[in-house]
Amino acid sequence: MAAPQPINVEDLNIYYSDFLAVEGVDVQIRPRSVTALIGPSGCGKSTFLRTLNRMHEVIPGAYATGKVEINGENIYDPRVDPVNVRRRVGMVFQKANPFPTMSIRDNVLAGVKLNNRRISRSAADDLAERALKGANLWNEVKDRLDKPGMGLSGGQQQRLCIARTIAVEPEVVLMDEPCSALDPISTLAIEDLIHELKQEYTIVIVTHNMQQASRVSDRTGFFNIAGTGKPGHLIEIDDTDTIFTNPTNKQTEDYISGRFG
């Protein structure tokens, strides 16, 4: 496999119809590391995250202008099919969303079956096991792979969603507040998992929890808005230690020291 390249974002403007939600993002996201995005509610960090796999435009009227290069290819090139982008850039959502009609096994294999239809039974079993092990879920579910995915606990469901995401072997995994609906123990399990996943994947995680950002990430970006109705900006991004101990920008310092937000 070729050496992984950073994600290059240049002059990205993100819109909901006429409303400019996030303005002028320029950033490089390092490969095989964890980048956390923090900021107050409504600052556009989730919106920005969703432009990295072109999920943003799923909302009617939503679009983005600018450049996002993944592996040297601009995913906003008109010739690029967003479906192919999403097969290489996986996403984990705020609430666990396993497919309710599918078994645990079928949930893990759902993406694979979309991408290449033909997969032998044994290859599928191997893949399901690998993905579930990769998501630290195998030991808990190996005896009930044919049971519905909805029967798992919230934390297990979220790890099932992570297994489903990594089963298609993406290059990047986006996580949109993956622990916000989980209890502390399940949160810890996911955070441990994130540490392991960064060996193989580039991870971008949006979180409301600054302790979580400092625990899991190598780099942290801070988003902020000047006020309601104004576009969000990426204020600064730096090594996580630097952001939390010695931020350059006054706004960042105010936010992490709890003066607002």
């Binding site: 999920m55 799923v58 999403r86 097969r87 609430k95 969303n97 497919f99 759902a110």
Partner: peptide
């Protein structure tokens, strides 16, 4: 549920 549809889309479903 929108969340279900987004789950499929994010996996690269048409």
């Amino acid at each position: 549920p929108l969340l279900q549809e987004e789950a499929a889309l994010a996996l690269g479903a048409t």
